[in-house]
């Protein structure tokens, strides 16, 4: 048991932090919502009612979609684009999807390779791109969830302001939807840019996200 926890410590730590922060967001969000209810002449709502509301759903989904977009772009763009000196990048001469031999697929698969890496056709093609596909799919679904929850939350606000509600089509072309989306995208893209660029010159001893402390700045794709 202890060994299992140690072997999965990174996932477990992030899972616990994720659940705690989501709970924190729910509690803070309920308090903020109820504060706004006082202004609007409404009644305070329970934590359960808030976490099943479109207000909570849109706030959660808009952050999720941007995170999955970030990883989708990072995973797929680093196939072809390189950054000299960055441990997040491949060496310039390695750009591309790699040979079957390098990728250990088909006839080059090892006995302990995943089953779909040993076969050809659509299964190998799907499995070869499964990480990017899943990240991309979760991004699209989260963004869709943001739009559906967003139009509900936005229309509730519009009715409070004595304005007509809008359709989903109008909402997804509205400044409200794009402001929510773009403010998240810009921060995610800045975070990736910072990671790629700062890791050329800065080090974090012991982290696989960094080059070894003594590695020259020009070394690329070396993780320590």
């Amino acid at each position: 048991m202890k060994q299992k926890i140690k072997e999965n410590g990174l996932s477990l730590a992030f899972l616990v932090m994720f659940l705690l922060t989501l709970a924190g967001q729910a509690i803070a969000g309920t308090a903020l919502f109820n504060d706004q209810q006082l202004v609007n002449g409404g009644e305070p709502v329970s934590l359960l009612k808030y976490v099943t509301s479109s207000d909570f759903a849109v706030d959660v989904a808009e952050n999720w979609q941007s995170e999955y977009l970030q990883f989708f772009l990072f995973i797929t763009m680093t196939i072809w684009l390189v950054q000299k000196g960055s441990p997040e990048s491949k060496k310039p001469e390695e750009a591309g999807t790699g040979s079957d031999e390098e990728q250990l697929v088909g006839p080059y698969a090892r006995p302990d390779s995943p089953a779909w890496a040993k076969v050809g056709g659509i299964r190998l093609s799907l499995y070869s791109n499964s990480l990017g596909l899943v990240m991309g799919l979760v991004f699209v679904l989260s963004w869709l969830a943001q739009s559906v929850a967003g139009v509900a939350s936005y229309n509730s606000e519009r009715l409070l302001d004595l304005r007509d509600p809008v359709s989903w089509g109008t909402y997804v072309t509205s400044p409200e939807f794009w402001n929510r989306s773009l403010q998240n995208w810009q921060s995610e893209l800045l975070a990736v840019l910072s990671m790629v660029a700062l890791s050329i010159y800065l080090r974090q001893r012991g982290s696989p996200e960094s080059k070894p402390v003594g590695a020259p700045h020009a070394w690329t794709g070396v993780e320590g």
Partner: peptide
């Protein structure tokens, strides 16, 4: 989890 959010949104917004 995502489906739960989507369902919540649908319930909160449409049904």
């Amino acid at each position: 989890m995502l489906l739960a959010v989507l369902s919540t949104a649908l319930i909160a917004g449409c049904a």
